[in-house]
Design a protein around this nucleic acid. Sequence first.
DNA 1: CGTTCGATTGAGGAAGATCAATTAATGTGG
DNA 2: CCACATTAATTGATCTTCCTCAATCGAACG
Lengths: 252, 252
Amino acid sequence: MLAITTLPNRSLATPVATDPHPQVRRQMQDTLQLISDALQPERRIVHAGDRIYQAGERFGNLYVLNSGLCKVVGLSADGREQLVALKMRGDWLGFDGIAEGRYACDAVALDTGEVWTIRYDALLAAGASRPMLIRAMHEAMSRALGRDRDSLMSVCTLPAQARVAEFLRTWAEALACSGLRTDLFTLRLTRAEIGNYLGLTLETVSRALSGLACAGLIRFVEKGRREIGISSIAALAAFVRTSLAPAPDLLQ
Amino acid sequence: MLAITTLPNRSLATPVATDPHPQVRRQMQDTLQLISDALQPERRIVHAGDRIYQAGERFGNLYVLNSGLCKVVGLSADGREQLVALKMRGDWLGFDGIAEGRYACDAVALDTGEVWTIRYDALLAAGASRPMLIRAMHEAMSRALGRDRDSLMSVCTLPAQARVAEFLRTWAEALACSGLRTDLFTLRLTRAEIGNYLGLTLETVSRALSGLACAGLIRFVEKGRREIGISSIAALAAFVRTSLAPAPDLLQ
DNA sequence: CGTTCGATTGAGGAAGATCAATTAATGTGG
DNA sequence: CCACATTAATTGATCTTCCTCAATCGAACG
C-alpha cells in the first residue's frame, strides 16, 4: 500500500494538508493568459440557460470558461438526459465533438460568465509554433478524463450520503482553485439535477443533505436551501472515508 | 425527438442498422499505419497480468494497443481498486498521466497483445510537421471521454441486469470494430471485476448473466462459464431499451 | 393572492447487498 | 493419476438501502 503515497494529490479522499491552491490558481491564470495572447479568442458573455453548444451540431470550436459555471448534459438514444459533467473557470468544453465531428452533449451555462471561443483548426495551427498551447489543451483533456474517472468511482463505490458529501467536497475544492470562498456557496443545481448527476433520486439527495446538516458537516443558510455552508472540507473528506471503510481491520 | 437522428451513431441503445464497422476498422488501420510510419514506436509483446504503466510513475509515454486487451484500474486513497476502463485494439493509454505529470491509474494486460510505446515529447515534435498525428491523438482522447460518459450513464440510469447487458453489447461492438467475431467470445474478466466495473456485486453479476441466458439473449458455452455466446446484438440493445422505458405511454 | 416550482419528510415496497452453502474448474504435490 | 487445496461461479435466504408514491411547506412570480 505504499504506492498510495506516490499518487497525485487529487485522489478521492485526501484531506488537503498543505494548501496547493495558490500554485494551481497561478498555473490556470498563466494558461488563460497564453490562450488569450496566442489566439485572441472571441469572448462572449453567457447567462444562465444559454447554450454554448448543442448535441448534433457540427464540431469546429473548443471553448474555455473564463468565468461562470456550466453543465454538460448527455443525451441517450431514448431522449432522456443525464448530467455528465460540471465545468468551472479554466475548464475547456467541446472535446466530446472531436471524435465524431459532432458534439455529443449539450453545454449549458448555469450562471453568468464569460466563454472564450477557439477554433480547433486555429489552435492546431498556432500550436505548431507554440507547443505550450497544445500542451495546455492536453492537460485540460487529461483533467477532464480524471474527473470522469472520479465521478465513476464515486457512483460505483459510495453510498448515497457519502456520494453527496463527495460531490460537495469536489465542488468546494474547485471553488478554492478558482480563488473563491469555499465555506459558503450557492448550489446552482436543483436536487433533481444533483440526483441525476449522482445516480440518485431527488428525495435521496434531499435526505442526504438534511443528514449532513444534522451531522454538522454542512449548514443551510437562512432564506432558501440552495445556499450551502461548509465548515470544514477536511471533515467532509473524513466522512466520505469512513463511509467507505466500515471495517478497516485487515489493512495495516 | 427528431434531434436523435442528428446524434452520432455511438448512442446508448441504437441498434446497428447499417453496419458501420468496415469503415471504422479501416480508419483505425490508417491511424495505426500513420503512427507506425511517423514515429516507429517501440513494439512490445505483453502477456496477461503484465503492467503497461503504474499509478504514481512519472509520465512520459503514451501507449497504443495494437492487439490484445487491457484494463485500466484506478486507485482510491484508501487503497481500494476500481476498474475504470477497458482498452482494445486501436485504443491509446496513458492520457491520465498528462495532467499531473504522473499516471493516475494502473494499466494491466488481460491477454497477450502488442503495445506500442510513444514518447509524448516525440509525438508533439513529430506533430508539428504532421498535424494528422495530433489529430489522431485528439480523436482517441475524445473517444475515451465519450466512453467514460457512456459508462457513467449506464451506471446512473440502468438497473443491474440491463447494465450487464449493455456491458456485453458494448464489448461485442468493440470486437466487431476490431474485425473479430462477436457471436462468441471469452470474458477475460471475473464476475468480481465486471461487478467492480459496473458498480455491482459479483453475485448480482452472476444472477444477471443467468437471467440473460434464461431469456435467450446470451448463452454459455459448455466447459466453463467464461465463454459467452451472443445470438443477436440487436436483441441485447432492445432489452436495454425496454428496461429503461417501462412506461413508454406518453412518448410518440 | 393564487399558482407554480422546488424542497422536505414520511410510509411502504423493491432492487440489490450481504451472508452462507454448494458446485465446478484449476492447480499442486504425492 | 488421484487426493487435496484453491479459486471462481452459482444459488438461496435474509436484510439494508434506496426508490416510489404521497402529502406538506416555502419561496418566487405574475
